[in-house]
Amino acid sequence: MSASLLLAETRTLLRARRTKLSAGLLLYAVIAVPFLLARPPAEVVSAVARWFPSRDPAFALFLFVWFDLGLNKLAALIGVVLAGGIVLDAEAQRMLPIYLAKPITRARYFLTRLGAAAIVFSLLFGGAALAGLLLFPSQVPGFRAPVFLAASALHLLGALSAVVLSGAMAVWVRLRLGAMLSSLVLLFTLIGTAFLGFYAPAWAPALTLNPFSQGVSVLAHIDTLRPADVARPAAILLSMHAAVVALGALRVRRLEV
């Protein structure tokens, strides 16, 4: 993958309307979280206290609301919006013969598009985390910036699965709408079960391959966070992403235009 092409693709995606819309959605989430935390439902407060025992229950509640109610849902939507039509969009708009007539393999084209989507997604989620870092300390009692940043970094890595899965699904399904819908169903299933290990520990081993479970696993270690608590799930997530990307690249190699 050449740096200049990745940069050009990233610039193109940053200028796209769908990226601006995604940024707007994340801004809304940042602004909405303090309102959600102002009067949380009692059952949520007690469930979070059971799942994530912490000396700062308000901080634990905030992390749950921020990652589960806010970012996870948006990750699925934004991942599909940014990567759900990769390659298929160029094919539908009849641009693919021009691009693939250049000295670039199909796999490299796919990887460049996916790489750019991942960079833009990371910029958006990284930007939301930084905005949160400015806004939330004054709103959340017991807010701990290092834990928030570590949890955000791991969550971003988990949420990137929305981009990776949507991109791979696009080239496997080969129908834009079908690929996007399939990605949404899969991603929301994964998100819906992401916290299952916390309230039904017997299920925890089965969720090792759920990237969203790995992405929020830091919440179990809020008071005792060690580097290994981030490094281990990060390694699992990177391996999973590499495998899914490889499957997508393998599929796209046989694409004819």
Partner: peptide, 26 residues
């Protein structure tokens, strides 16, 4: 190569598009 049926990326300008193609040639 100039294909028979093609379209150009609607959201790019001509200069942006040509730079994008240049990047494909490294």
């Amino acid at each position: 190569f100039l294909p028979a049926e093609y379209s150009l990326p609607r959201e790019m300008t001509a200069v942006q598009f040509l730079h994008y193609v240049a990047a494909m040639f490294d």
